[in-house]
Nucleic acid binder design. Structure first.
Lengths: 343, 343
DNA sequence: GTGAAAGCGCTAACAA
DNA sequence: TTGTTAGCGCTTTCAC
């Protein structure tokens, strides 16, 4: 069963292929009789334009790439969902999913693959500080927007981040306002900008409260439940007894809570815990996790707008968008058990 | 900056385009001198084949579509991750993500879009019992494999399901073995095969234990936390006091637990709760949820194998694979408070 | 082994 | 308006 092409439609409608093409693309008003004949032929033959052929001819893939460290991370899943919806609504763009498993090698390979016509643009959420292929791709003209995490050594490229430092600042300030002074910090890996920024915010908030930052109360590592668990146990074993801990990620916070429970600590009565990201998970924890909310929809919208802007050659994209975060107070933080702490 | 094409490479290497093409695709051994010249030209020019052009010429998109009701559902996120990995490893296939938001309209539109050459095959996870466009697409020859949920009125097409009934059977039998006899059931919407099958398994297990199925103890609705919450409250308000509830989905189970807590019921001491799916969530609930595990990796692997099989024209795909599930016992179920129940 | 040329199915520049 | 025709960049017969 051969494929039905414009040619067949044209033949049946008794017009030329270009007329069919233009009529179907709406770039032409034909007279009613012709229109009717074309419509008839299309229906009779069951004609459908071949997307690949169209894309090759127009030099537009009508697809954007979404590169993420892991689609099972709810943050990226939400981002994917929102992006996909927006893309679909903005002229029927499709989304090619690239899951790198946080591997630098995959990030490179995918960037390579995408950068030669497969997609019209790329929303890039890296988990590694560098990507040579990305720099090249951007130089060659691939529209790219960086989301969430920074990449070094790139030509100027629009970025959409959130107020990482401010989020940690607020979370810490909140803990301070509750009366905590021994606040432990479980943070992300130092190579990541988000991790560094959140740490910075934490330290600034401590400073503002005239509390000295104590390195012995801080642990840095991967954004995982397991690391949070280990970090908390480690803290305790080392004789560091914070009354509160701020985790730079909800998975880590969940791990901290799990460890606290294992250590016989009641949350929030004996230990306050605050997270970061506001994953769905945080609502299901007991007690429900107080955490810093990321405006995922907004991130997705801004990223897509910016990307579509540069794809369509619209210039003057805002280069750095920094979106506001919000502290969501739930149940995992309370005043320290020992009552107020002396100055 | 014009794009570098095979032509440019051929010219620079002093050979014809067909030689370059064949050499690059490995379908030809050229003599060393020529090979070297071509390699040199490719490197010097920074040539990269245009994927779309190649796809048009070979009539193969090297992409598979993944249609899911929602990528934020961890089950589908996991499926996407596994599928993407397998596809990437199996000859560098990419995956086009289609999130339908459980909308029948989106399912149709996406099917339409994909079925005309955009992808070589489709992994279809529908949430609606019918899809005309899908039937047509299959008829026209699009390789499709149905996963998780069935669709009616389709030509013969391979399916990968799990033992839904058996899972519910085991969960119920487990509850019975603990001593429960008043077991409520919170199930999925009746249009879905998974929902019907799970209910069937539940009923069969009750029957096997000589317990009459009591419709007053059952509630059917969407696979959401909110519905679980409402169903549990409703059950209680109606004066139905089960000692255990089996939910057909972990979200629902989470909602049931939330409602139980709100009603002042301790889980599992006063109410046992068992879920279905084994989402990551279930591990974070307090108490950790006993639930039926779905073998996601296995599902993804089977689906991809089957799909790639039909894409490559390999015939004789197994039409119906039914994968085994497993009851994961955690902490949310225990013997009923009232001790043993008379026969 | 290598080259010329004809597509893949569509769009768009140019002519009529 | 409509038709003719030359691409988009690649693969692949078919001859040499």
């Amino acid at each position: 069963m051969r494929r039905v092409t414009v040619r067949d439609v044209a033949a049946r409608a008794g017009v030329s292929v270009s007329t069919v093409s233009r009529y179907l693309n709406g770039s032409l008003r034909v007279r009613p009789a012709v229109a009717e004949r074309i419509d008839g032929a299309v229906a009779a033959l069951g004609y459908r334009p071949h997307p690949l052929a169209r894309r090759l001819a127009t030099n537009s893939a009508r697809t954007i790439g979404l590169l993420v460290p892991g689609i099972t991370n709810p943050f990226f899943a939400r981002l994917a969902e929102e992006l996909e919806t927006s893309a679909y609504d903005h002229g029927g763009y499709s989304v090619l999913l690239c899951d790198t498993k946080s591997l630098a090698s995959r990030e490179r390979e995918y960037t390579e693959l995408l950068s030669h016509g497969l997609v019209d643009g790329l929303v890039y959420c890296g988990m590694n500080p560098a990507n040579e292929a990305l720099a090249e791709a951007i130089e060659r003209g691939l529209p790219v927007v960086l989301v969430d995490e920074d990449v070094e050594g790139l030509p100027p490229v629009p970025r959409v981040f959130v107020e990482n430092a401010e989020g940690a600042r607020r979370a810490t300030a909140y803990l301070v306002s509750l009366g905590h002074r021994r606040i432990a910090y479980v943070g992300g890996p130092g190579e990541l900008m988000t991790a560094r920024e959140r740490l910075r915010g934490h330290r600034e908030a401590l400073e503002a409260a005239s509390i000295a930052f104590d390195p012995a109360l801080a642990r840095m590592g991967p954004y995982t439940d397991a690391f949070g668990f280990d970090a908390m146990n480690d803290l305790w074993r080392a004789g560091e007894r914070p009354t509160a801990v701020l985790a730079a990620n909800d998975y880590q916070a969940a791990g901290v809570m799990r460890a606290a429970r294992a250590l016989g600590l009641r949350v929030p009565e004996e230990l306050s815990v605050v997270g970061f990201d506001d994953m769905p998970l945080s609502r299901y924890l007991t007690p429900a996790l107080t955490t810093v909310h990321q405006p995922v929809e907004e991130i997705a919208r801004q990223a897509l707008d910016t990307l579509l802007g540069s794809i369509q050659g619209r210039d003057g994209a805002v280069m750095n968008r920094v979106l506001a975060v919000e502290l969501v107070v739930r149940e995992s933080a309370a005043p320290p058990a020992s009552g107020r702490v002396g100055a």
